[in-house]
Design a protein around this nucleic acid. Sequence first.
RNA 1: CGACCGGAUCGGACAGCCGCGGCUGCAGGCUGAAAAGCCGCAGGUGAGGAAAGUCCGGGCUUCAUAGGGCAAGGAUAACAGGUAACGCCUGCCGGGGGUGACCCUAGGACAAGUGCAACAGAGAUAUACCGCUGCAGCGGCUCGCCGCUGCAGCAAGGGUGAAAAGGUGGGGUAAGAGCCCACCCGGCCUAUGGUAACAUAGGUUUUACGAUGUAAACUCUAUCCGAAGCAACGCCGUGGAGAAGCAUAUGGUUUGCCCGACCGCUUCAUGGAGGCGGCUUGAUCCCGUGAGCGAUCACGGGACUAGAUAGAUGGCUGUCAAGACAGAACCCGGCUUAUAGAUCCAGUCGCAAC
RNA 2: GGUACCGUAGCCAAGUGGUAAGGCACGAGUCUGCAAAACUCUGAUCCGCCAGUUCAAAUCUGGCCGGUACCU
Length: 116
Amino acid sequence: MKFSKSLKLNHIFQRLYRTTGVANGFVVLYARKNGTDTNRVGITVSKKLGHAVVRNRVRRRLRDVYRLNEEKFRKGWDIVVVARSKAVTADFQKLTAAYLQLAEKAGILLPARNEL
RNA sequence: CGACCGGAUCGGACAGCCGCGGCUGCAGGCUGAAAAGCCGCAGGUGAGGAAAGUCCGGGCUUCAUAGGGCAAGGAUAACAGGUAACGCCUGCCGGGGGUGACCCUAGGACAAGUGCAACAGAGAUAUACCGCUGCAGCGGCUCGCCGCUGCAGCAAGGGUGAAAAGGUGGGGUAAGAGCCCACCCGGCCUAUGGUAACAUAGGUUUUACGAUGUAAACUCUAUCCGAAGCAACGCCGUGGAGAAGCAUAUGGUUUGCCCGACCGCUUCAUGGAGGCGGCUUGAUCCCGUGAGCGAUCACGGGACUAGAUAGAUGGCUGUCAAGACAGAACCCGGCUUAUAGAUCCAGUCGCAAC
RNA sequence: GGUACCGUAGCCAAGUGGUAAGGCACGAGUCUGCAAAACUCUGAUCCGCCAGUUCAAAUCUGGCCGGUACCU
């Protein structure tokens, strides 16, 4: 990925959870400017959603959604994505639609100038 | 053909595009004096039979410990073997189940001692309620029986219970009882077979074998066990706090000035942010030969086969199949639990045909 | 990843082998013009589940299931 890294430090997660996120039935999304020119993305899948195989599948899908749509995002943000229970049963297209809808709502997408 | 039984192996496949973690290589790019790091490219590699539960046993690390013994606490329990070790495995014995292949089995000692056995029942390790019988007395009459009272004998029958002093049959007796006899069961002794547990056969005479159950109750006997766990542990180390030395305010920082607040450098030890190591070559795997009923062992040849650190295997498309349980985190050997389906091997019973 | 503990009525819970105390709540009744308070009565069907030991298991043993706490 060109300008994105994985978000690892626990205190940054805690700082993001104090902001107001946006949500739908699939995921919750928290976002905050980090003052650099790279994005840091963290994914949280709770143990309530299932055993390890289910949690790994949800996490890998959420990571691929960001990877395949990286050009649409603005630079310089910390993003945390929390999976909800509908994300376990949703297919990939529904998950992508839900993710991008929340990113639009949070204002971290570039204006869609070359669409259509 | 149908119904079963035991064991072993596999447990989505192929193609295309986009991605991820280690490893190796590069006269590639950037930083750097170098070592090296980051990026890029190429090659090759990358989750399980249970990776799970954390129920046992080890390796490894730290702490404790001269060495040995006793005690305490815990674990295991027929016998023989296997193993680094085990509470695991194999064989075998005893017991139970199945027509059978076969399956299940914590299976030492209540005859060392102690405890417990509710309710019911006369009585729970001991007895005499109903009862059976003899003798004496009294009473009745149909005159050899009945009833009551007292003394004595009995443990067969009734009933209670999970359990009532071996079982069946006969003799015996006033009535009865292993009191005696025959057979059986159990205990003990001897012989034979077996490494052994044990099995089979014989004996059990004299005054004198017959004992309730429970040890997953305390206990006894035999054997074993130091404790904790990779978030262990080792190394580097920011800030803070500590010690020593140097410096010492007329200085410096905090907003240009005033007020106010704070204090520098070096070394040492400690060390909780963070980082690195531990981290994968091992009681390893595959093939063959031999020993053994088997678990397993010996020898020969070959292979190197994940090592992450918020945690790498994913997404999409097509064809087939539709199909489970499920994701390494220091590493091994077991056990237990979850698991759709497929293949192979050995075998049993029933029916039919030859 | 590791360690320790718990599970009994709707809730809080006692119960160390012999038919499961108590309190709150719910329901019914008495009282009251109607309520509240007070008083009386009611409920475990298998003590989380499955096996085993025992004459007998909430209790003892083993295995599962669910939950809680601690180690950073």
